[in-house]
Design a protein around this nucleic acid. Structure first.
Length: 349
DNA sequence: AAGTCGGGGAT
DNA sequence: ATCCCAGACTT
C-alpha cells in the first residue's frame, strides 16, 4: 500500500525542525503550527528556522502576540518578505482572543475566515494540531500529484483546483492525515524536487507515471513569468539633529502602506541635478546639501529594482512627528531589505 | 482568472 | 540569470 511506504519512509527519514515535536504522533500546539505554516508560505524551510525560533521565544503564545506592538511584530518578520503575513498574524491573534477565547474556532470555514489563513493553512492546523482528516495542498503536493498522474496542468482554473484538492482529500482521508500531509511535503521538498528529482529513492516510485516514463522533471508545467526592470530614486533625508525621514503611504511603488524611505520612479538617466519629485518631501530652501550615493539593486516579486540613492541633509531640526526616526531605531522603522540596503549605502560608506 | 506581494536558496 | 518556495488576498 502506497500510504504505508510513504509513512515508513517519513518516520525513518523525518528531519528535525524547530516546529516539529520529537514525537511524530504528538498533537501539536495550534499556535505553533499556525506561526510556522504562515512563515513557510512561499518561504523555504532553511529561511524560516531562525525567524521561527526568535518569534516563539518573544511571542510564545497567542496572547503575547496580540499584546505586542505592530512595529515589534514587523521587526521579527524582517527578511521574510510578504509583510502582510505578519500584519495578518497580529490581526488574527487579536480576533482569536476577542472572539474565540484564545483558541482556533472549530469549523474550517471559521478558521479560513481569519486574516491570512487560506485553505492550505487551515488544513495544516486542522490536521497537524487537531489530527483531523483534512487535506492540504501546497507547491510540494502539486508537484507530486502532477508527476504521479502525469497531469500536465497547474491548479489555475476552478475545475483544475478541484482536481488537485480532490486528490489531496483522498490522501488525507485516514486517521493519520497529520502524518500523511507532512510526509508528502517532506517528500516533495527532499526527493520530488522541481529539478533533479531523486526518483530512485522515492517511496511512491512504483505508482508514479512520471518515474516510469522517466520524465519527472518535465512536470508540472512551468508557469510563465515575466520580469520587469524598474528604475527609481530612494531618498534619505537627514535632519539637522541627525534623524531620518520616513513616510507611510498607500501609493508608494513598492511596500505599500509600510513605513519606509521616500521612493519614486525615475526612468531617465538622471543628471547630477536635483530631481524635482523629491520636493514632495522637502522644500528646496531647507536643503543644506545633497549628493548621490550610487545605486542599489533589489528584487521584489517580478521587478528588478535599480535605485539611485539620494542623500539630503536638511537645515532644519526634526519636527515632533512620527516621520522622523532616530538612528538607533532604524532597524525597527525600516524593517525591509530594500530600505536597509539604501541606508547602509548612504550612512555607512 | 489574473495580478500583487519579499526575499532568499538552489542551480 | 532563472525558478520557485509548507499561499493568501485583491482586482
Amino acid at each position: 500500500m502506497k500510504l504505508n511506504s510513504l509513512v515508513q519512509w517519513f518516520l525513518k527519514q523525518r528531519a528535525s525542525l524547530p516546529w516539529r515535536p520529537e514525537d511524530p504522533h504528538a498533537k501539536r500546539d495550534p499556535y505553533a503550527v499556525w506561526i510556522s505554516e504562515v512563515m513557510l508560505q512561499q518561504t523555504q524551510v532553511e529561511t524560516v528556522k531562525k525567524h521561527y525560533i526568535a518569534w516563539l521565544k518573544d511571542f510564545p503564545t497567542v496572547y503575547d502576540l496580540a499584546q505586542a506592538d505592530e512595529e515589534n511584530v514587523l521587526l521579527h518578520w524582517q527578511g521574510l518578505g510578504y509583510y502582510s503575513r505578519a500584519k495578518n498574524l497580529h490581526k488574527a491573534a487579536k480576533i482569536l482572543i476577542e472572539k474565540y477565547n484564545g483558541d482556533f474556532p472549530k469549523n474550517r470555514s471559521e478558521i479560513e475566515a481569519l486574516p491570512g489563513i487560506g485553505k492550505y493553512t487551515a488544513g495544516a492546523i486542522l490536521s497537524m494540531a487537531r489530527h483531523e482528516s483534512e487535506p492540504i495542498l501546497d507547491g510540494n503536493l502539486i508537484r507530486i500529484f502532477s508527476r504521479l498522474h502525469l497531469w500536465n496542468f497547474l491548479p489555475t482554473s476552478k475545475p483544475e483546483q478541484d482536481i488537485y484538492w480532490d486528490e489531496a482529500r483522498t490522501w488525507s482521508q485516514g486517521k493519520n492525515a497529520y502524518i500523511i500531509n507532512e510526509a508528502l511535503m517532506e517528500m516533495g521538498r527532499t526527493l520530488c524536487k522541481p529539478q533533479n528529482p531523486l526518483c530512485p529513492n522515492c517511496p511512491l516510485q512504483q505508482e508514479c507515471k512520471a518515474t516510469s516514463e522517466n520524465c519527472s522533471s518535465q512536470y508540472p508545467p512551468r508557469k510563465k513569468s515575466i520580469q520587469e526592470t524598474w528604475h527609481g530614486v530612494i531618498v534619505i533625508i537627514e535632519s539637522a539633529d541627525g534623524k531620518i525621514f520616513s513616510v507611510q503611504e498607500e501609493d508608494t511603488p513598492f511596500l505599500k502602506g509600510q513605513r519606509g524611505l521616500p521612493l519614486f520612479e525615475f526612468s531617465k538617466a538622471h543628471g547630477k541635478g536635483f530631481p524635482g519629485k523629491a520636493e514632495r518631501w522637502i522644500t528646496p530652501e531647507s536643503i543644506e546639501e545633497y549628493h548621490w550615493c550610487g545605486a542599489i539593486k533589489h528584487a521584489i516579486t517580478k521587478y528588478k529594482i535599480e535605485c539611485q540613492v539620494l542623500y539630503i541633509r536638511s537645515k532644519d531640526k526634526s519636527k515632533k512627528s512620527s516621520h522622523w526616526v532616530a538612528r538607533a531605531n532604524i532597524k525597527q522603522a525600516f524593517a525591509n531589505s530594500l530600505n536597509l540596503k539604501a541606508l547602509h549605502k548612504a550612512l555607512e560608506d
